[in-house]
């Protein structure tokens, strides 16, 4: 089992890591656009904030309906693949990353964007300064997104299917062990999950410190 546990952990990391990278790219771009257009943000941001806690099974269910063989995207044959989990988790964490990044970028724009313009920057130079000064906050948004993706069960179960050696991730493994009454095993998987989350967060923090120098 230790060998299998490591393999499951590696798969979880790969799937949720990919989902987080994917989601971060569009979420941060969207957040920047919202931070630059007060009118659109007044409508969209409350909506996004409300969706931060959307139940994972609901996202899983909607994606299942889209991907199942009779669904509109059925022809891609993505159901019960790691790719399906990646897509589902990326969607799941989009409201979280976008709304946190939006706060960070709005604050940063009001200080550094305005400063850059006051000093004669082009819009692009101002954006570069804003992003560079926002990196710690954006990193925090990404870590939160990763944490939610890594720890979610609903999407992985519904569109991944918990197939051994293929789509089984830490959380679906925990659910399985619990259903089998293997509480000790479930708990140690849980401990591993938390340890990985903490490690990822600390690593990013460390990288941030290096940059400050």
């Amino acid at each position: 089992m230790p060998g299998e546990a490591l393999e499951i952990a590696a798969r979880s990391l790969a799937i949720s890591g990919t989902a987080t990278l994917l989601s971060s790219t569009w979420s941060i771009v969207l957040a920047y656009m919202l931070a630059r257009s007060p009118r659109a943000s007044r409508l969209l941001v409350p909506f996004l904030e409300a969706l931060v806690g959307i139940p994972t099974v609901l996202v899983g269910l909607l994606l299942y309906l889209l991907l199942s063989s009779q669904g509109p995207l059925g022809m891609f044959r993505l159901l019960y693949t790691p790719k399906a989990i990646v897509v589902g988790q990326a969607i799941l964490i989009t409201p979280l990353i976008t709304s946190v990044a939006y706060r960070v970028l709005t604050h940063s724009w009001s200080m550094y964007g305005e400063l850059a313009l006051a000093l004669g920057a082009a819009e692009r130079q101002a954006a570069r300064l804003v992003f560079s000064e926002s990196l710690p906050g954006l990193a925090a948004a990404v870590v939160m997104g990763f944490s939610r993706a890594f720890g979610e069960l609903g999407v992985a179960l519904m569109v991944g299917g918990n197939i051994r050696g293929y789509t089984r991730v830490i959380t679906t493994a925990i659910a399985l062990e619990v259903s089998r009454g293997e509480f000790g095993l479930a708990l140690s998987l849980g401990a591993m999950l938390v340890a990985i989350l903490v490690l990822v967060s600390l690593t990013l923090r460390f990288l941030g410190r290096l940059r400050e120098r």
Partner: peptide
């Protein structure tokens, strides 16, 4: 034209 803020903002 350059404007200087009342609360100074410095870059890294």
């Amino acid at each position: 034209v350059v404007y200087v803020h009342e609360k100074p903002v410095l870059v890294r």
